[in-house]
Amino acid sequence: MSSPIYSSPRPEFDAAMQEAVAEARRTFKFFWRELYWESRRIVPGLDLACVKVPFSDPPGSRNDDGPEVEHMWINDDVFDGQNVQGTLINSPRWVRSVAEGDHITVPLSMVHDWLYVIGGRAYGGWTVNCMRLRMSDEERLSHDEAWGLDFGDPNQVLVVPDWSKSNPAAEKAGEHPMALNMLKSLEIHLKQHPEDSRSSDDAGWTQLHSFALAGSAASVQMLLAHGADPTAITNSGMTSQQMAEALGWEAVVNLFQNHPARVCLKDGRLGS
C-alpha cells in the first residue's frame, strides 16, 4: 500500500491531532467488530484494514536527520483485548529499528488511528482526515489519488456503513448485520451441539470471549442462555466481561453484570 506518512513534533501534539487520536481509540471497537465479522465471511468484504502506530528508535540509535517519531500502518491485525498485532506495511523513512514486513505487537494505547475500506470507501482515518482538513483542494485531491481511496468530506469521518435502509433491524439494535443474520443458525447449532457453548481453543478462548470482544450482545445473550461459562478465562487471564469492558461494549457488559453467574473482580481475582 502506498500511503502518506506524517512524522513531526507538531502534528502529533497539537490539539486537533490529539483529538483525532482520541476519537480513533474511542471508536476502535467498531474497527475490531468489522474485522471479526470479516474473518467469518466466505467472500471477503473489506478491500483494506489497517491500524496506525507511532514508531521511534531506542535512545542512542535515532537518526538525527529525521523526526523522532514516525507513524506507520500495520495490517493483518489481531486484537486479544489488550494488544494489537499485525504486519508493518510501510517502508520506514527515518526509523531504523523496524522494517517493512516486521511483525508488530503494541498495546491498544499505542493505536493512533484505524482504517477499513469497503468498495473503495474509507471508514475511520481520523488522523488522515485531520491532515486532509489542512490541505488545499488540490492537495487533498492529490492525496486521495495517491491512496486510491474515497475519504469523503474531511469534516465527517464515517465509522460504520449506513445500515438504516439495508438492514434497519441491525441499525436499531446496534448490532452488526451479520450478527443478526447468523443468530438463528447459532441457536440451532447450540441446540445440536450444546458442548460448543463452553468449548475453548488452544488460547483458552470460548465463543463467548470472541462475541464479547466483537460487541454482539445478541450473540452473547444466546450463548449464555445455552450454558456458556462467563467465568472462563483465556490463557492471558481475561474473562468475557473483561473483553467487553476493554472496548466499552456497554450492552454486553450489562448482560454479564445481570447474569446469575456474573463475574465480579475483587483485588484482581474472580469472585461472584
Rank of each mutant, 00 (worst) to 15 (best):
R269M: 12
Q221F: 03
D65L: 09
G237E: 06
F31Q: 05
V117H: 06
A22G: 03
Y123K: 06
D113V: 12
H103Q: 15
D144R: 06
N235P: 08
S272C: 13
W249D: 05
F28A: 00
I104D: 05
L88R: 10
W73P: 01
P4F: 14
R10I: 12
P9H: 12
Q192N: 09
Q242K: 02
V43Y: 15
S39C: 00
S39H: 07
E175Q: 10
A217L: 01
A99I: 07
N181H: 12
S2T: 12
V21K: 14
S7V: 01
H259L: 08
D77S: 15
M135L: 13
A203R: 10
A261W: 07
E70N: 11
S61Y: 14
D102K: 03
K29A: 00
P9E: 10
S216F: 12
E19Y: 06
R62N: 05
G237F: 10
D64A: 15
E145H: 09
D229S: 01
W205S: 02
R121Y: 01
H189N: 11
A24Y: 05
N90G: 03
S210H: 10
R134S: 05
V106F: 04
V128S: 04
T234C: 04
V128M: 14
K165C: 04
D202C: 02
P44H: 08
Q242V: 02
W32F: 13
H259E: 09
G45N: 00
W73L: 14
R40P: 10
Y36L: 04
T206I: 12
D162F: 09
F151H: 10
T231M: 11
L183K: 05
P230H: 06
A20D: 11
S2P: 05
L247T: 07
G148Q: 02
A217D: 12
D47S: 08
S61F: 15
I188L: 11
G125K: 05
